[in-house]
Amino acid sequence: MRASSDRLTVGRPPVGPIQAFLEALASLRRRRRLIWYITISSLRGRGRDSVIGNLWWVLDPALNIAIYYILVVVIFARSEPAYPLFLFAGIMPWRWLSSAVSESTSVIRGRASIMRSVAFPTITLPASTVLSGFISFLFGLVPLAVLYVIYPERLTGWIFAIPLVAIAQIAWTIPLVIFISAVSMFFLDMQNIVNHGMRLWFYATPIIYSAEGLRKIAADHPPIDFLIKLNPFLWIIEGYRDLIYAGRPANWGALLGITLASLPVTFVLVYVFRRLSPYFVKVL
């Protein structure tokens, strides 16, 4: 008892990048329940006050898909076979990313009062954003069952490998959300920048069109081809599409590659976050 009470609680010396990273991991583990409660709260908040409440969780992505279906199939008269399923495999994971990223611009600022009254590891806030995005992604998978009723021939055992692709997506969502949540504390413009950036990124990623088509266009322009391949979400979306739509194994080598590539990025951005976090209260 004595030891714990004697502990130095405020005024610890600053630490280097590696300790800062380990400290962040430790505080995420120690405050896992905090992350969980904030996540529950934000998930509940999403369904409240609307007439059909939690049904929006399913309806939202369904309407999203319907709009792109009308746009591409009816208006542009271009499509892939079983296009709703094709769209689904692209849009569901994208919605997870974009909701997490757009929430991250306000996740810390929105808790100004607690930030001003309690010292706690701020990194738990972006962590809860990633988690709540993931959970609504899981709920969004429910309409997949309906699509497989329409296209039963597309259903294969490969759908059980979806969590593996989700790991690669989490690996990239975490550093992005952490970075944006920290930077948007200092620049209020981040919200606008992020909105437009996400829209640009959406169209640059093969979500409503196929990756093959994109590759064919890019093949004649090596620099563009290179840029396209740098986009981790190209590989992630293709991974989902292989499993859900094409019923074949994903490009596991590429997915492993981008997951590993996220580690140094995460490391650096967690450190940046840790260095910036003492200033959050001052700029609130």
């Binding site: 714990s4 009470s5 004697d6 502990r7 130095l8 609680t9 405020v10 005024g11 409660y37 904030i38 529950i40 709260s41 934000s42 509940r44 908040g45 409240r48 808790r111 009062s113 607690i114 930030m115 001003r116 009254s117 309690v118 010292a119 003492p278 209260v281 001052k282």
Partner: peptide, 29 residues
């Protein structure tokens, strides 16, 4: 420990409880 001093040092030993802004962290839902 909410604000980090920009100059000088601070040391606090022991568990702190803050009653600065009551009910600040409560979530509506």
């Amino acid at each position: 420990g909410i604000i980090t001093p920009d100059e000088g040092e601070i040391e606090v030993r022991g568990r702190i409880s803050t009653l600065l802004n009551l009910g600040a962290g409560f979530e509506d839902d």
